[in-house]
Design a protein around this nucleic acid. Structure first.
Lengths: 124, 124
DNA sequence: CATTCACTATTACAGATGTAATCTTTGATA
DNA sequence: TATCAAAGATTACATCTGTAATAGTGAATG
């Protein structure tokens, strides 16, 4: 799988929220947030198909697009490469970055606690 | 400060380990690890100077290069942007992935606990 | 059935990036 | 002092990216 660019990632996010979707559905969602022209979004969709990250099936005149690459896999892969490349293999600086942004919500903390509990179970 | 590309980052890492260094010192360290031609490394150094991430002072015929952008700042900035761009501001999915791959280390968990403790302090 | 739309496919083009090669300058050497 | 060699500066060139515009095609409409 080829690398996915930043602009392409925004398109993937839309497809990850819901799939399949027509090009126009994707365009609409991105028009709000990003000011992108319809043609731009369609180019990005095409490139993603070329890269094997998105597939489509015909539905009459239009196509229905779906992600091939799934978000959890993408996030894991990118995180691992980011941690190696930028953080020299250490997760801690990333957590620190998170802390400084002060954007932890109660819900997140609960989730993190659960993760820790599970992890500690497995260590025994 | 402009973005630093992946190849440029490798040059920064060498300068972060030690500074100042001549172009040739940098070249030598990268020749081992990366197969880069001398000219390539010098181009990267130049681009980094152009981007304001590296400075130099003359030392006779050669230049001595030093990082302007420091590694901790770079790591923090990149981490925050990565958290937003790739993780949509949420840490849990990433950690879940790591846990699943048994890549979560005790050190990471300790850091995570601290993060949570700090958060809980702030809530009071 | 001919024409027009609405889609997709193809093409465009400038700036960034990877990866060097060539040009210019200047200190070192014969 | 004239020449050479090594540093940095400039130029090169294919890809990738961001951001569209234009061309082609088949389904819907008059």
């Amino acid at each position: 799988m080829k690398e996915i660019s930043q602009a392409e990632l925004e398109v993937m996010k839309v497809l990850w929220r819901q799939a399949p979707q027509t090009a126009n559905q994707v365009v609409e969602q991105l028009a709000d947030a990003s000011q992108w022209h319809e043609k731009t979004v369609k180019t990005l969709l095409n490139r993603l198909v070329g890269k094997g990250a998105v597939s489509f099936e015909k539905d009459g005149r239009a196509y229905l697009y779906s992600p091939v690459l799934q978000q959890p896999e993408y996030q894991l892969r990118e995180s691992q490469s980011f941690i190696q490349r930028v953080l020299s293999g250490r997760l801690a600086p990333l957590l620190a970055g998170f802390a400084e942004q002060q954007q932890l919500k109660a819900e997140d903390v609960a989730e993190l606690k659960q993760l820790i509990a599970k992890w500690e179970q497995e260590q025994k």
